[in-house]
Nucleic acid binder design. Structure first.
Lengths: 143, 143
DNA sequence: TATTGTTATACTCTATAACTATA
DNA sequence: TATAGTTATAGAGTATAACAATA
């Protein structure tokens, strides 16, 4: 019994679907509790690390550039994001998260109890294991 | 060096977000190539294991029951799903996937190359590890 | 010529509320 | 009374196509 029965790909993909669905549900619920849609919350998260151009945000959200206008309009109206013209290319608009926006992303992350509780069940060794496995599966290294 | 540096929770949650994005993008793209939205594809997947009542499907999709009517209308119009009145409770409508619907779910699963390629990088032992970790984190056992 | 951001349009998803037919 | 499914409605996300400003 050095090796458990083989876990086949279909089984793993199904488990991934369930697991990531649980994560997404947790995220969506936490976002909703702050009156944000999942896309809006994802946008704030993307801006958390620094200013991003409209176009780059569309790539990050995997959606068409035309959608970003509406999403940012709504976030800007609530004072969670600011538009800033680029100094180097006058076509470009950079997006900057405001302190209010940062605070909300903190609140959302704090409210993701199900995911955090799940992660808290892991030992340090298991956390490292999970990180390495996820990186191997999902981090693009090929091509 | 028996133990790598500790992986903290925020780091793991960020990695989960990235992983989810990659998986969801792969799934959405595969569904789009069959002219289905992600919700429609998710619905067909849910029906793959057998008939499901409208209400139960709403729970599976984590959405309000009123949304299911429209989603099923569109799938039914394309012949991918069939409505069937329940024999035991005349309020209930059971949903049955058609052969065409089954074929499309197969095609979608087959087209999720990025996720499958990622999983293919793992050894059998790692697959078992990943399965166990995901189950520990996301399978509800508490309460 | 190509790119950035916007607008207009149409479709889908989403929740809320009100309705009907059953239970 | 409560539940299953539907309809109507309004807001948000989405892609496509066309546009002005800039590169």
């Amino acid at each position: 019994m050095t090796e458990a029965l083989r876990v086949d790909t279909a089984q793993l993909m199904e488990l991934l679907a369930v697991s990531l669905g649980a994560y997404y549900g947790d995220f969506t619920l936490a976002a909703a509790s702050e009156n944000l849609t999942a896309s809006q919350a994802k946008t704030l998260t993307a801006l958390r690390r620094g200013p991003v151009a409209m176009r780059a945000l569309a790539d990050a959200l995997s959606c068409d550039a035309s959608n970003v206008t509406g999403i940012i309009n709504r976030l800007e109206k609530r004072g969670l994001v600011r538009r800033e013209p680029s100094a180097v290319d006058r076509r470009v608009t950079n997006l900057v998260i405001t302190p209010d926006g940062e605070q909300i992303t903190d609140a959302i992350r704090a409210k993701m109890h199900r995911t955090r509780d799940g992660l808290d069940r892991l030992t340090d060794a298991e956390r490292t294991q999970l990180r390495d496995l996820l990186e191997r599966v999902f981090t693009r290294r090929q091509e």
